[in-house]
Amino acid sequence: MTLLLSLAIAMLFGAGATLLMKSDLIRIVVGMVLISNAANLFIMASGLSRGFAPLYPLPEGALVSDPLVQAMTLTAIVIGFSITALLLAIAYRAYLDLDSVELDELEEAEEREESEQEKEWRPF
């Protein structure tokens, strides 16, 4: 089970990282979502015990799932979601400015600006 969980987390992380390598703002956001999911799954998996839902009345003698990691996962999911939403808003604003969701075009603009600054130069 440990191996399977680790594999699943690694695949989520890897898929997210792959999407981060794309030059499309939306895909980068999606990649971030996947990486956050990997982290959330990891928190859930790092629970110290696994069993019934942590709800009273608890079954006698049976294992109960670690409630603390559940609380942490919940918090992490919500935080991750909020930040993703903000990232999406930033991406949308970037689109409004450039009329493109292409990161390459964003970076071209950046480079253009920089090369304008580079023109004249003296040390002191």
Binding site: M11, A17, T18
Partner: peptide, 22 residues
């Protein structure tokens, strides 16, 4: 390139996560 980076980070994540969960 994207797949290479993704694959490599998956391996790294795997090693780290598996080590901790084990």
């Amino acid at each position: 390139r994207a797949y290479i980076v993704g694959g490599a980070s998956a391996v790294v994540a795997f090693l780290g996560v598996w080590g901790a969960l084990s």
